[in-house]
Amino acid sequence: MDNPLTRAEDFFKEDGIDSSKLIGRSLGNRLLTGLCIALSFAALVPLASILYLVVKNGLPLLGWSIFTQLPPAAGMTGGGFGNAVIGTLLMVGIGLALSGPPGILAAIYICEYEPGGRLASITRFTAKLLTGIPSIICGVFAFAAIVLATGKFSSLAGGVALGVLMLPTILLTSEQALLGVQRAYREASYGLGATRFQTIRRIVLPEAMPAIMTGVMLAVARAAGETAPLVFTALFSQFWMSSLMEPTASLAVLIYNFSIVPFEYQVKMAWTASLVLVLLVTATNVTAQLVFSKKH
């Protein structure tokens, strides 16, 4: 490799300047490189262990019936977690419905209408603060605002908690997506006599849409795996749900509940639910990246 370093070393060696020191330096260089690479690949070990165990322990119970049946009672075997899959999809859906429109609209306001304005900088700051708030606080908020107010644990409360969680992600990624649209496109549009609204609707949004969808899907993937906001808002249920105002099962809470019980079958089910959840989250993530890279 034509490296300036090696060239410099060769230069010194030829002149015979302090070659013992040079060997030390070069040795130290290799040592640190090796250490750095070793540490990097050491991070693989736990990840490999997690993936291996999730697949190994999760596969035996994975089958069609697990998606169509109800969880077994304590100590019993058989059944599935169909209600938890539906509950997860429903609550992520509620969260998306609540946070998607305001998040994207706020991003449009920040980027297109008043980039330097006061409301824009306050909103941006707020979104940053919201990303820093622990996810369990979203649950605490939904508990106070919905559960205490209605007197019931419900999927609505869970959905609201997930919505709060998703809002800053959607807002900030949409902002980045809009910032990615070239200035020249906007100027060309104005130059052709389009209004600002026409420019946003016909030029900017279509151009930014793939990146916005990526952000939305990343938010969905994150929310689907979250347990903390649901554990005391949606709680859990052994049954199919019949309304938005009753305790509702989710995959994440099922894993939590079943992992700490002494029944072998339930623990196996927690692993299978983990496998399904990891597949769901990874698939969403990968799709999000593909949607994005297709355009750019």
Binding site: P102, A106, Y109, I110, Y113, F197
Partner: peptide
């Protein structure tokens, strides 16, 4: 166009409102 501008501004305000609501709700309880 003006109408749309107000809607987007409403989106921005709602984000700020949510943060305030979280603090208020937790503090109140």
């Amino acid at each position: 166009p003006d109408f749309f501008r107000w809607i987007t501004a409403l989106g921005a305000v709602s984000a700020v409102f949510v943060l305030g609501w979280i603090f208020w709700e937790v503090f109140e309880e």
